[in-house]
């Protein structure tokens, strides 16, 4: 079989690779989902003598690759998995920092300058139940991470906790505590 036939058969996978890489930079992009079908087409292209069988395999592998890339997108956007653990964790820590800053501002509004804020849940101290319902998330490797590049997202219920102190020096006395 001439090289051009095999190149023609693998080119849709390369287009898919470029598209997914460009469109899905933040939550991660599929790799194995187009690489395995592409490798399959190469193997069948070199070793299979029947042209019909080769075409059927190439088309089938491409359809499967489309489904796999689509499924990858659904998995990383569904909230259960992430392909870029460091990017996701950076986002989660930023959200936690926002809660801490908001808690600090609310505490400074609630307590006068010359008083000492007692230790306790910020929700009770400022009378805003939202501070009892924050979340702490982690990206965890699973048994298939080496293959799929996907990390499972583990979520824990948490609350904003104030360790007590003067209103002016609260910024490092407020923490996110898991329930």
């Amino acid at each position: 079989r001439p090289w051009s036939h095999i190149l023609l058969a693998v080119s849709p996978f390369l287009v898919l690779a470029v598209l997914t890489r460009l469109l899905l930079s933040a939550p991660g992009s599929p790799v194995i989902e187009w690489l395995v079908p592409l490798a399959g087409v190469l193997v069948v292209g070199f070793l299979c003598k029947s042209n019909t069988l080769f075409t059927v395999y190439a088309v089938g592998a491409f359809v499967a690759s489309l489904v796999l890339c689509g499924n990858y997108i659904l998995l990383v956007h569904g909230g259960g998995y992430t392909g870029r653990p460091s990017v996701s964790e950076h986002g989660w820590r930023a959200t936690e920092l926002n809660s801490i800053r908001a808690a600090e501002a609310d505490l400074q509004k609630t307590f006068r300058e010359d008083t000492v804020v007692p230790e306790g849940p910020v929700a009770t101290l400022v009378g805003n139940e939202e501070y009892n319902h924050v979340e702490r998330a982690y990206a965890r490797r699973t048994w298939h991470t080496w293959l799929t590049g996907l990390y499972a997202i583990e979520r824990h219920d948490a609350l904003v906790w104030c360790q007590g102190g003067e209103p002016g020096v609260l910024h490092d006395r407020i923490v996110i505590r898991e329930k």
């Binding site: 395995v36 399959g40 070793l47 489904v67």
Partner: peptide, 20 residues
């Protein structure tokens, strides 16, 4: 995830059948 891994497995199995 099950769909994902089984589809990848199918691609490999069919490639081995086609190559042999």
């Amino acid at each position: 995830m099950t769909l994902h891994l089984s589809l990848l497995g199918l691609i490999v199995v069919f490639a081995l059948i086609g190559a042999s």
